[in-house]
């Protein structure tokens, strides 16, 4: 019944040197819908695809504003993301209260990384089942970080997490040269194109399932949700995946995800 004897807790290594519970947590991210982040020299953008559990249900929030200079996009267990984002809000508030300084992005990211890492080293705990893309602006400019439940954080120019995110990453890798110097509007459109490419063949971006956020140097974090997304989708034009057929690799990847 069990795959092996080494996946009951997050403190025991397998003989191959792996910690299965942590790896399963990383799998939980891939169950979530896709979130894309990218930065230019002046802005950081998050875009994400929202899912509704059933036709008549509301859509799960994918982007959470932390502060006026900072926000996160999530893929995976939303309740775990709520815990982490509440913690980030506390860090942000205490930095403002104590030092009158907006918290530096790398500091708050490292703070949640430390929280996540502790969970991989204590018996009776479980890792967070959520991946985050953290986008924000501080004194050193715009930043995009990826957070993983393993406690690993890395800074990116462009990143995508969640189901079928490989297609978005492929787009970002191709468009990277263009978007590092692009304007605010172009950057959002690049984000939406990356998001569009990770859609399943019969799906399209709508005002209901798309969410966009932008933060820039001297510009507060702004979340576009619902009708506000309409203007962005109009500028985007085509709202379906522009990829011809799926590649074998991507088709294989989507087999074990429930789209």
């Amino acid at each position: 019944m069990f795959r092996n004897n080494y996946d009951n807790d997050s403190v025991t290594f397998s003989p191959q040197g792996r910690i299965f519970q942590v790896e399963y947590a990383l799998e939980a991210i891939k169950q979530g819908s896709v979130a894309v982040g990218l930065v230019s020299k002046t802005h950081a953008v998050l875009v994400a695809l929202k899912r509704n559990a059933e036709e008549l249900g509301s859509y799960q929030k994918k982007i959470i504003g932390i502060d006026t200079h900072l926000g996160v996009a999530l893929a995976g267990l939303a309740p775990d993301a709520r815990v982490l984002s509440n913690f980030m809000r506390q860090q942000s508030m205490s930095s403002r209260l104590l030092y009158s300084r907006p918290v530096p992005i790398s500091r708050v990211v490292n703070a949640i990384a430390d929280k996540a890492q502790v969970n991989t080293q204590h018996y009776g705990r479980r890792p967070y089942g959520v991946g985050l893309l953290v986008a924000g602006v501080d004194e050193t400019g715009p930043h995009l970080w990826e957070f993983q439940p393993s406690g690993m954080v890395l800074e990116y120019k462009g990143a995508a997490i969640g189901a079928r995110s490989q297609s978005a990453r492929t787009y970002l890798e191709r468009a990277f040269e263009e978007f590092v110097d692009s304007s605010r509007e172009e950057l959002v459109l690049h984000g939406l194109k990356a998001l569009r490419d990770s859609l399943a063949q019969d799906k399209e971006l709508t005002v209901a399932n798309t969410t966009v956020s932008v933060v820039g140097i001297g510009e507060n974090f702004k979340l576009y949700d619902g009708d506000e997304v309409g203007e962005w989708l109009e500028k985007l034009g085509n709202v379906q995946s522009s990829r011809g057929g799926r590649t074998g690799e991507e088709a294989a990847e989507s087999m074990d995800t429930s789209e």
Binding site: L98, Y99, S100, R101, T140
Partner: peptide, 14 residues
């Protein structure tokens, strides 16, 4: 932390 951020006068004052 060595991350390029420093506490400036207004931060220390606060």
């Amino acid at each position: 932390q060595n991350d390029g951020h420093h506490l400036r006068a207004s931060h220390i004052y606060r």
